[in-house]
């Protein structure tokens, strides 16, 4: 990169990338692109199969099952983002990644915040049986 691009030296040199688009810098043949998607599909299938296997097996410590399934789900979402949506850490992907990070933050706040608040509400509530008695 030279000349007209020098005003913006650093991590932001070059054009941005649309989400879902591959990097402009890499020249890849059609065969390589097909193989990339096939690899993504294979990994996604493997993780899906692992999820269903973990659900049915006795080999995993029971109380850890829910956490194991959550980890497998997050891993598979990552595979989809990398192989199908082409979200990477490359500088031309900065805007897309920042938007995604903000989205993930909000999702975590909503899901874990709701669970946390509702757990405490349930804890502080008069049990339903007693409530019915009091209203009688």
């Amino acid at each position: 990169m030279s000349g007209e691009h020098e005003f913006d030296a650093g991590s932001n040199v070059g054009e941005d990338r649309a989400p879902g688009a591959e990097s402009a810098g890499e020249e890849r043949t059609l065969g390589q692109e097909v193989r990339g998607y096939a690899l993504g599909l294979a990994l996604a299938v493997a993780l899906t199969a692992a999820s269903f296997w973990v659900r049915g097996t006795d080999l995993v410590y029971g109380p850890g099952l829910a956490l194991a399934l959550l980890v497998l789900a997050v891993a598979q979402m990552g595979i989809h983002l990398i192989f199908f949506l082409h979200i990477t850490t490359a500088p031309d992907n900065e805007n897309n990644v920042l938007a995604l990070a903000f989205g993930v933050l909000i999702v975590c706040l909503i899901v874990f915040g709701s669970l946390w608040v509702m757990e405490h509400l349930n804890h502080n509530m008069v049990p339903m049986q007693e409530l019915m008695q009091m209203q009688r």
Binding site: S51, L69, L70, L72, A73, Q76, M77, H80
Partner: peptide, 14 residues
């Protein structure tokens, strides 16, 4: 499909 990953993992399997 990403949302479905969440659904089959959490709604159905968990």
């Amino acid at each position: 499909d990403i949302i479905w990953v969440g659904i089959f993992s959490l709604v159905y399997l968990v």
